[in-house]
Structure formats: structure tokens, C-alpha cells
């Protein structure tokens, strides 16, 4: 009886934390939306420098999109493995998600370095500032996600798939999938319209 109430108390705590995490995600959604709005306002403020059509490349955007979407579904496979507490399968899928996320980040950094080398750096114009802030903020979130996946792997190896691990894993999943949603906005508002015009 005592352990049962202790257990349900713990479950309630995890639910509260998940709700709190949702509130954080929504506040993050507001930040990103305002960065999108800033980008839209700055769209033509190129100050004679390179504009969207000059700096966007469709193949790069397509590969980045594919990497992030695959990282989302491989994370889902880790969640499926957690359902049956298959520890090694969770580790493998988390590892694959980490590598896909790292691949995405590597491409983005490579893209940024290339742009800066061509003179399309953030200080060149209001347009480029808003581009780097928006896409860079998303990249910073992916970096945080990678650190979090690494800590999840460490925790899983130490404690195994406990309730506490599962609760944290669930919040990590919300974060990871949320980043993919932000990316939908980025390719739909930044990359595709940039290539179209």
C-alpha cells in the first residue's frame, strides 16, 4: 500500500514535469515565431548585399531536411524499444539519432562557414542578420538536443530503463520532435521561398 502511493506520487510528479516541459516548448515556439516574423520583415532589407536567392541552395536544404526527419523517426524507434525495455535497442537507436542530428549540424555549420567566406556574413545586412539568428537559434537547439541525447545514453547505461529514465526520455522526445517542427517552418519560410524568387 505504501509503495503503491509512493509510486503514484512519482507518476504524478513525472506528469507535472511533462506539462511544465510543454509550457517551455510553447514559450520556445513563441521565440521562434517572432524570429520568423523578423525574418519576414527583413526579407528585402539586403542593403545591396546578397539576398535569399543568392544564398539558398535547394540540395543542401533537402539533405538537411532529410537528416532531421530521419533523426525524428529513429528517435521514435528508441521510444518503441523503451516500451519493451530493450536496453540495447534503445542505445542503438539513440546513437543513430545522435549521428543524424550531428550530421545535420555539421552541414549547417559548413553552410554558414561557406556563406561567411563569400561575404554573406550576419553583419552584412539586416536580412542576413535575421537569417543567421533564425537558423542559428534552431542549430543551437539541435546542439542542446545532442548534449541531452548523450546524457540520456549515459543515464541508460548507468541505471537501465527505469521509470525516471523513461520520464526524462519522454521530455527529450518532445524536445527533439519539436525541433523538427521548427525546421518545417524554416524550410517553408526561408529556403523554399528563397529558391523560388
Amino acid at each position: 500500500m505504501h509503495t503503491e502511493t509512493a509510486h503514484s506520487h512519482e507518476a504524478m510528479l513525472f506528469e507535472e514535469r511533462e506539462f511544465g516541459f510543454w509550457i517551455y516548448l510553447m514559450s520556445d515556439a513563441i521565440i521562434f515565431s517572432l524570429l520568423f516574423a523578423t525574418y519576414a520583415v527583413m526579407r528585402h532589407a539586403t542593403a545591396g548585399g546578397p539576398g535569399a536567392a543568392d544564398i539558398m541552395e535547394l540540395p543542401t536544404a533537402a539533405i538537411e531536411t532529410a537528416l532531421l526527419l530521419l533523426a525524428s523517426v529513429t528517435f521514435g524507434m528508441a521510444a518503441v524499444a523503451l516500451e519493451d525495455k530493450r536496453r540495447n535497442a534503445i542505445l542503438v537507436w539513440l546513437g543513430i539519432s545522435f549521428l543524424l542530428g550531428a550530421g545535420f549540424l555539421g552541414m549547417e555549420i559548413h553552410e554558414f562557414i561557406g556563406l561567411i567566406a563569400e561575404g554573406a556574413s550576419p553583419q552584412r545586412s539586416g536580412y542576413l542578420s535575421s537569417f543567421f539568428v533564425l537558423v542559428g537559434t534552431h542549430g543551437a537547439h539541435v546542439t542542446a538536443g545532442l548534449v541531452w541525447i548523450a546524457t540520456a545514453v549515459a543515464q541508460l547505461m548507468r541505471t537501465g530503463p527505469t521509470e525516471a529514465f523513461a520520464a526524462r526520455f519522454k521530455r527529450l522526445g518532445l524536445f527533439w520532435h519539436f525541433l523538427d517542427i521548427v525546421w518545417i517552418g524554416i524550410f517553408s519560410i526561408v529556403y523554399l521561398p528563397g529558391v523560388l524568387q
Partner: peptide, 27 residues
Amino acid sequence: ARTMRNDYFKGFGLAVLLTVVPFALTA
């Protein structure tokens, strides 16, 4: 777990379709 996996696959399939179409429209 199997239901869950199938849901992820379903979502993934839809997501791929909804990504490929706008990229194809652009290209």
C-alpha cells in the same frame, strides 16, 4: 510497441510525402 512503431511509420510516411511535394514544387 508494435502499434506504436506502426504509428511512427505512418507519421514518417506522411511527413516524407508532405516534405517531398513542396521541394518538388520549388524545383
